[in-house]
Amino acid sequence: MTDRSVSAAVDVAPHHASALSRLMRRMQSGWRSIVVFIPYVWLLLFFLLPFFIVAKISVAQLVIASPPFTDMIKWTDDGVMSIRLAFDNFAYIFEDDLYVKTYINSLKISSISTILCLLIGYPIAYGIIRSGPVTRKLLLFAIILPFWTSFLLRVYAWMGLLADQGNINNLLIWLGLIDEPIRLMYSEFAVYVGIVYTYLPFMILPLYANMEKLDATLNEAAADLGSRPTNTFLKITLPLTMPGIIAGSLLVFIPATGEYVIPDLLGGGNVLMIGRLLFNEFHQNVDWPTASAVAIVLLFLLVLPMIIYQYYQAKATEEP
């Protein structure tokens, strides 16, 4: 189908709206509600409800028991219900330097990684768009392919490259640039490399999807009117690709803030990140109330970016 016939189909759509709404009403009861009901209940039970339980545990106290926290509601002997909320866990998090530092460091690392992904990913996405139709498909495939292979193994690949006796150090020594191996592993640098490497496709794909809709005639018109390429890029291309930039950035920023595997494998104990702290608090220290409070604070920090992402996602799926 040509573009014209697509737009024609869109144009006539409103005429059918009445037939559709009639249909919708007919289906109102019966299988239509089942269609919504099943995934709805699933998400309520396995996605939303768990957060409330985490919130509940975050205001409980740590005890040595299984599970290791106190009940929120207690029945006293005379049958009176007492509710205990202990906000000590939150107070503990905000008073302890370690937690505050770790939150700030996580946000710093994820912000810088997002900017790096954008700086690398934007020209790549733009380069794909500027290629011919067949090359474009192949390049896109090449970008997506690593995303399908194991995330864990992609991080592992960098352990081999960055190690003291790893390929990068060997190469630098062979080139005569350094005499002694330099410490690359277990540093913030290694964490940045890991995040950028594994999250880069998440930046490129939304950018590509957005750039695909760009109209080349706008750039040509600007050029005809005497605009320099840099000027055209700043005044036309960049503003038009803003939705892609925002979606891609959030898709990197939000999960990277809570990242566990990369700081654990590439950062070791030297890099403070909240995902790793939470994981250890939970599994090694078995301190569930503190881990839950850490999770609630993290969620609170990320709620705004998530809402913005949802807004753009909803807009992207609604546009034909």
Partner: peptide, 27 residues
């Protein structure tokens, strides 16, 4: 709410999803 619950898992940090599902199963 439905739309929100459908988008949130895409970006939710894994440690939060994992922790919350575990406490759900234990409860």
């Amino acid at each position: 709410l439905f739309g929100g619950m459908l988008v949130a898992p895409l970006v939710m940090p894994e440690v939060i999803t994992g922790l919350s599902l575990l406490v759900l199963f234990i409860t």
